[in-house]
């Protein structure tokens, strides 16, 4: 393996350095989130009214970029894909959790990461949302004895789309790129449609 990545997994540096890296990556993450307007709840929520689909464009662009990067770095022998962490699948909790999360997302107008950007830039709603999140985690923790069994159910481990669909990794990658570009085209169309006034504009006297 020429590249020897992921470097931390190969013991190239220790925990201290990894924490410094965490901060640096976080700074870049927060920077780009704010640049994309994700720290602004009104802009974000436009996604759910199909007026401003920046959330879709930004998230999908990020996913496609990293996904292609992982594929080709691995193909080039620079990265050991088997050592990259794949979030585990827990079908039922993730579907139910997703629904609840989405409802909260539409209500709050920010997600956990972007709420920190919002709070950092002075938005009180960001702070309120952070407080809510902490409360929600606490509620979950206290309720865990009751719902823990459900939360740990239907686990499938590090199940990936290629495995689930029986397609090659590269085919899934190509498919996701195609879906993303289609989604972008759709998003542009929807936004243009939203800009066109549905009713005649009120004339300002």
């Amino acid at each position: 393996m020429i590249g020897g990545a992921p470097f931390y997994e190969f013991g190239r540096f220790g925990e201290g350095t990894s924490l410094v890296i965490a901060v640096l990556l976080g700074i870049a993450f927060g920077w780009f989130l704010e640049q994309g307007g994700m720290g602004n709840a009104r802009k974000l929520s436009g996604q759910f009214y199909l007026t401003d689909l920046s959330v879709l464009k930004l998230m999908f662009s990020a996913i496609v970029t990293a996904m292609l990067g992982l594929f080709w770095l691995s193909w080039a022998g620079l990265l050991d894909l088997s050592r990259v962490y794949v979030p585990e699948t827990f079908i039922a909790p993730q579907v139910v959790g997703g629904l609840i999360f989405g409802a909260g997302f539409a209500t709050g107008g920010l997600c956990p990461g972007t709420s920190c950007v919002a709070a950092a830039t002075g938005r009180k709603d960001g702070l309120a949302l952070i407080a809510g999140m902490l409360a929600g985690v606490f509620v979950f923790g206290e309720a865990f004895p009751a719902i823990g069994q459900f939360a740990d159910s239907t686990g499938r481990g590090a199940w990936t789309l290629p495995q689930a669909f029986g397609l090659s990794y590269g085919t899934v990658v190509g498919g996701i790129v195609a879906v993303a570009l289609g989604a972008f085209a759709g998003a542009e169309w929807l936004e243009r449609r939203a800009e066109r006034p549905a009713r005649p504009m009120k004339v300002v006297a």
Binding site: V64, L68, F71, W75, G170, G174, V177
Partner: peptide, 23 residues
């Protein structure tokens, strides 16, 4: 330009199939 890179990257990925080349 980014879209073109994505299309090329994605299309070639389909051709390549596996991200781990047999060494």
């Amino acid at each position: 330009a980014l879209a073109i890179v994505a299309v090329v990257g994605g299309a070639l990925a389909v051709v390549a199939g596996s991200p781990t080349r047999a060494t």
